[in-house]
Amino acid sequence: MNQKKTEAEFNDELRRKFQQDMATKNNGMVMTKPPSTNSKSLEALIEDTQNAQLVNQDGNNYIETIAVNLVDDSPWQPRSRYDEGYIQALGEMLQDRGQDDPIIVRKLPTGRFELIAGHRRVRAARLIGWSTIKAQIVVLNDRDAELATLVSNEGRVDLTDYEKGLAYRKSVDRGFAKNQTEVARLFGCTQARVSQCLSLLSLPLEVKDILDKYPGLFGYRYGVVVSDLMKEFPLGIDTITQGIEQLIDNNELNSDDLRSFVERALLNRSRSPIVKPTIVSNLQGDSMFTVKIKNNQIVIDIKDENIDKNVVNSLMIDALRNLVLSNQ
């Protein structure tokens, strides 16, 4: 009890102390109050929404069996290639277990259906010769259809980083999201992921050409190495693309392999003309030392046998110490 009182006193004192400060600080800052009426119960919420849904059954959403040959791809879907092995496996699964979830389509004025979600399932169905497929038919305008297609592909399956990057950029270009934060919210991933996938789109055109053909060739980590290499070897794009193309035949290779391939090719070539030794001569013109930079080493050749190596060595050490000190 006693303790409580002192705490209250303490707070009171502080309150007085801060009253003035607070008065100025809260100026213009609107602090919303939480609602104060009584919330309805969970049960009431569920009952009310179920009733509302019954009223809402306006035929806008229904499931039907439709002809596979009436189904068209979405013009907006971000997947650029289909893994044949996967489609085959999916086909076998459909054959074994039947179709669990309907594909999602919208009906076009032509009477055909345009896919929103289920591009791979439709391909699998064609492969195993199904003539019909279970579909949920929704009514959507172009804009919503585009958004739904973008989002559903992302939500359902493993798009490659590059394809994700393309979808993310599209969502910004088309005005569905204003910035990376909004993209992340739209696609339900982190902003870091968005930024990683988008970074692939800033690679040089030559590299993106490869990714357009082989979107799964590499992910963002490898992309980081590619752009690092571009910075280190601004003129090395041909060599870099050559290095990347090796991935197509050998997916065991990783970004370290790319780096060493590029370095091997470019460092060797560029070194030979540059590495000329500096010659240090005496007044008579006899060369006393040659000094040469070799990777991380400086090689000093002592040409005159009379020179005391120990003296040179301690001179060098002194010079280096001075250098270190002056940098501190």
């Binding site: 969970l42 049960e43 919420l45 569920i46 929404t49 849904q53 806008n60 959403n61 999602i104 979600a117 929704v138 959507l140 919503d144 958004l147 739904a148 989002v151 559903s152 992302e154 939500g155 359902r156 919210r185 739209l186 696609f187 339900g188 991933c189 982190t190």
Partner: peptide
């Protein structure tokens, strides 16, 4: 994180995903 995308999809399709979790818990309890 895919759940969020699926909720977004639902919203676009005109379904109301907002009470999904509520319904799950109500039935569960």
């Amino acid at each position: 994180d895919r759940l969020e995308a699926l909720f977004t999809l639902d919203t676009i399709m005109g379904k109301n995903p907002e009470t999904t979790i509520a319904k799950f818990l109500y039935e569960g309890m």
